Simulated assay, not measured.
Amino acid sequence: MTDPAERLPNARRTVADLASDDGGFIVACSTTGHRPEPATGARFDSRADAQKAAEATQEYQAAMCELDPEHPTYRPTVYEDDDTPLHVATTRSRTKGMRSNGLPRTQESVTLSNGRDGEWIQMENAPLIHLSRDDGPFDDDVVARQLDAKLSD
Rank of each mutant, 00 (worst) to 15 (best):
S113R: 14
G118D: 06
E119C: 08
L151E: 05
D134K: 15
N114W: 03
E124V: 14
V142Y: 08
R145P: 01
D141L: 07
L147F: 15
E124D: 12
D141I: 10
K150H: 13
D134V: 06
D117Q: 08
R133A: 11
R133V: 00
S109C: 10
D148L: 02
D134E: 13
L147R: 04
D148C: 03
P127R: 11
E124Y: 13
R116T: 15
F138I: 02
G136I: 08
E119T: 10
P127H: 09
G118M: 07
K150Q: 15
L151K: 07
D140V: 15
V142S: 11
E119V: 10
A126N: 05
N125H: 04
L147A: 00
A149S: 10
I121C: 03
D148M: 00
I129R: 10
P127V: 11
L131D: 04
L131Q: 05
Q146R: 03
R116G: 08
E108I: 01
G115V: 02
L112W: 08
S109R: 13
A144K: 10
V142R: 03
Q122R: 14
L131C: 05
R116A: 13
D139H: 08
S132D: 05
A149D: 14
D135V: 10
Q146Y: 12
G136R: 00
G115R: 03
E119S: 15
